[in-house]
Amino acid sequence: MNLFRLAGDVSHLLAIIILLLKIWRTRSCAGISGKSQILFALVFTTRYLDLLTTFISFYNTTMKVIYIGCSYATVWMIYAKFKATYDSNHDTFRMEFLVIPIAALSLLVNHDFAPLEILWTFSIYLESVAILPQLFMVSKTGEAETITSHYLFALGLYRALYLMNWIWRFFAEGFFDLIAIVAGLVQTILYCDFFYLYITKVLKGKKLSLPA
């Protein structure tokens, strides 16, 4: 464990909690893509199946359980508890356009052709693009609430910090995982445009809105 990885995990946790609290306290999931949240629930479920087979550390297990739990709680709030506030008209991204090609890719490009390993690979690939329905929704409505912007920033920052962690681990331990690195790069690149808007607008106290 190095500082980049810890900071990445904390940033990831913060993102998930910001989103949960935003929905819970405003009793509304307006502006949030339920589809991205379903994809994240799928990401955590397929990645953390090793909870049942391998024990890595108390930290590792605890974080995995929290991520999965929060992720399902978010999906439940969007599709059940606060369903009336869910903006489904603007959440029109087709999930199958991501899930099906990624399932195929994870069968073709993986470290080992074993069920758990393929599911792990699927989750890594899927995570890299799971935010697309949310970004699509923001671009469609042309704006995002400030709290939603904080959520997106923390979520994007997490993988960027993991990139630093992988550079660190490569030099410190000779460890590298090409699948995670390439997917992590793609994931971080997808957020770059948003990072720019966040820094130039939200941090200066303005609401995130896109030019018409």
């Binding site: 990885r5 995990d9 590792n60 470290h111 758990l116 792990w120």
Partner: peptide, 10 residues
């Protein structure tokens, strides 16, 4: 390699 791969990251 026979051993199951371990992914120690989250």
């Amino acid at each position: 390699e026979d051993e199951e791969r371990q992914h120690d990251e989250l």
